[in-house]
Every structure is written in structure tokens, then in C-alpha cells.
Design a protein around this nucleic acid. Sequence first.
DNA 1: CGCCAGGTTGATTTCGCTCAAGCAATGTGG
DNA 2: CCACATTGCTTGAGCGAAATCAACCTGGCG
Lengths: 236, 236
Amino acid sequence: MQADCFVRQYRQTTEWGVLSKDELNRIDDVAVCRIFEAGRGVFRDDDPCRGIYYVTSGLVGIRKSDPQGNSVILWRLAFPGNTLGLRPLLAGEKHRGGAEALETSTICFVSAAVVRDVLKKNPVLEHRFLQSAARALGEAEEVYFENVTQSVRTRLAHVLSIFKDHNGRTDDDGALVLELPLTWRNISALIGVRPESLSRVIRKLDEEGWAHFSGRTVVVRDFDRLMGEIGPDGRV
Amino acid sequence: MQADCFVRQYRQTTEWGVLSKDELNRIDDVAVCRIFEAGRGVFRDDDPCRGIYYVTSGLVGIRKSDPQGNSVILWRLAFPGNTLGLRPLLAGEKHRGGAEALETSTICFVSAAVVRDVLKKNPVLEHRFLQSAARALGEAEEVYFENVTQSVRTRLAHVLSIFKDHNGRTDDDGALVLELPLTWRNISALIGVRPESLSRVIRKLDEEGWAHFSGRTVVVRDFDRLMGEIGPDGRV
DNA sequence: CGCCAGGTTGATTTCGCTCAAGCAATGTGG
DNA sequence: CCACATTGCTTGAGCGAAATCAACCTGGCG
């Protein structure tokens, strides 16, 4: 056994949680875990999908580029506990984006054959995946909708709220303190704008007193008020 | 039996195709078919999902709006043969958009209980749905990507290509003739721009000789060339 | 007949992109 | 240890696409 990435998730509410401890152990037995330095690629766009990647630690980004390779955006972030490559595996497609470690990350690989085998033996897991695919589809709609509809400012706030959930601290004054795990460059790619545009928005937010930005540290005075001000409905 | 909407799909490659004729008949027995005049609502945003809607004829649009009701876009079109409401049903969520008949349409409703029952008895159908959800997820990515990346002109061309597949005729000169089933207003909502902007793009395309627009009739001189001109590098 | 929704057109503004320069921190080789 | 490149970030000037505001035109339709 190389690791215990999956077993450790036993109690978590991941889809995998429906499997028995034995089954999870079996997966861990065949899982291949590797450490990827920041910047290292995990798989590339259009690569055939050979299996799934389970993120144990660190942070991984999925990038997408148009057929010519230009206009690269950061499509999605994968935090510890997330699984990559499940969608193409289920759909029988190639990877639609390239994955790259944004921080030093531990990633466990499980081959497609094993996954399919486990799925076949566990219809319940399949059902879970169906549910979660359906939810993901809904999420995708929201993300799309937001990005078409909302301003850069709003989208930035949304990204901040993601990191609030993952890294957020609250300091003595009750202000939200974030230590961003991404460069601003990457955040701009995540939002889908040029770094320059993001930079200007940041300066404005700072000038207007909503938050203070220095390096990758962000201090938000009153997060709820910011969200309220930005999406008059409070929904980002 | 009220209708034969589902049985009629027997040979089609819909996901439902994996069911036996008997099972499809059973669904038809409990399906409730109604005719919706153009403009009539089928279900609304945030309505709980009580079942699925199968479009037999006509054209249905799914609209999305933010919680205030502003900035409505036409999120998706449902042509005959398409099923609405499957995603929220599987995800156990509410509807994420409102559906409205854009033309007079026949729509068959099947309650959630029946769908779940059928799914339980047919793991193969469930597997199909999983595959198709996974593919839909990939599609969603592409659509998103296109709408963020491409110009109004390009997106209009893509909308035209959708109607080419559904309504397209070729006249004596080999030109593509389309009779659009949507108002320009709705098309602009589908593309996600203001009607004025679309109007200007149309005029330009006409002036430049790519196509002739009069009312809802569009005649495209050389469709492939238009797509070629617009597609390869993404920008015009 | 007047009303009204769909559509057009023009003038103006806003937003984000492009191009271009500059700066600070980090790294690297001599 | 210094000279130099590299990388991430900032700032400015100008541009172009689409939004906004506003007027007006048209063809149903009560």
C-alpha cells in the first residue's frame, strides 16, 4: 500500500464515502501517489484519460485554451479532496483541459480500469456520481452565468469568497484575512481578464476602502457588506 | 394511454432508447401531454422539480435571471425530442431557470416518482444518464468558453448553425435559407447581448454581403465560407 | 383610431483589451 | 558580491466592442 488517501476520506462526504473501508483500501493499494512541485503539469489538454487524479494536498488548476492555444484561462481549481478526470472518464472523452500544480501538491492516480471495476461493483457509487455530475452541471451554469453577466469586480469578490471558505481567517477587528494561494496573474486567468484589468480593480477596491491588498494578503473590512454592495442580492 | 411520445422515440438514439417498448408504453400511460401556446410558461425559476418535461413538438426556451429578475438571458433551447428538468431531478435541486414555449408546443410531463422508479429498475438507463450528464458537462464548458471568448458576430453565426441543423433549407442557388423560429429579441437574449447590438451586427453582415436578412428570413450565400471566415482564429 | 411590442438608428459612455513602460523581488552566473 | 535576466505586478495612453440612452418607425391588434 502506497498511501491512505482514499481511506482517509472515509468519513468525508465525498462521493467515495459510500464505499466500504475495504474497498477504499483496495483502491489505495493500486493508487500511485506523487508529489508535484508548483508549476508542474499533471496532464495536458487532449490527453487521453487514463484514470482519475485525487488531490490529497496542495492546489491544482485546470487550464483551458482554444484550439489555437491562445487565450488561456484558468477554468477550475481543485482543492484537496477533489477528484480530477472523472468527467472525461465517464464520458469516454479526452481531457478537455490541462492540469497543473499551482502549489506543491500530492496527487494520487487511479487507473481507469480500476475505477470502472469499482463502479461496476458499486451501483450506489454510480448513482452518487450521477447526482454529483448533475450538480456540477448546475454549478457550471451558475459560473457561466456569472461570468457573462457580472463585472470583474463582482467576479473577484466571488473568487475571494472561495478562498474565504478554504483559507479564511478573521483577525482581532473582525476583518477577514486571506492569504491567497495564487498569484494575481492566475487569479486574473481564473476570472477571465487580463492582469492589468484586475490590477486596476484591486486598486479601486483598495482606494474605496473595501479591502486592503498587499502582496498576496488581502484584508477585507466587512465581507458581507462587500458582497451585498456588489451583488445587490448578496449572491456574489 | 394519452399519447405515444416516448414510444415514438423507440428507435431514436435518445438515452431513453435503452428501455423496452413495454417500459416506454408504461411511461406514456402516465405521461400528461399538454399544448402550450407561444409565450406560455411551463415552469418557473426556483420551482421545485416535480418531474420531467418531454418536448414533442414546437420550441421551448429556458430563461435564466438573477434573483432580482434583471438581466434575463435565454439560456438554452429545447427542440422536439429534448427532455427538460432531468438535471434538477437527478441533482435533487429546484429548477435553475424558467421554461417558456417560444412556439406553440406539445409537452409531456412525467412525474419524478415515475422517473425514479424507472431508473431504479433500469441501471442501464442510469448508466446512460451518467454518461450523458458527463458529456453535457463537457459541452457546457465549451459553450461557456465560446461565449466568453468570441465576438457577437461569431456567436450569431453559431446560433444560425443551430437553426441550419433544425430548419435549414437550400435554395436553387445553393444558398442556405433559414426561417428563424425566434424573434430577434430572443436571439439577442440567447447570445447574451442587447437587441441594439445584434441589430448592428446583422446590418454589417448584410452590408458586407455575407447574408441577406429580411424579417425572420435569413439567406446565407455561402455558409461554410462564413463559418470558415469567422471560426479559424476566433476573431474577425 | 391609438396603443404597443419588436425592431432600427444615432450619440455617448463604459468597460476591458492592447501596447508599452517601469518597478521590485528573486534568481543566476561570472 | 555585483551585473544581469526573469517574473510578478503596476501604471498610463489609446482603442474598440458593446452597453446605455433616446428617438423613431413599423405592423399588428384591441
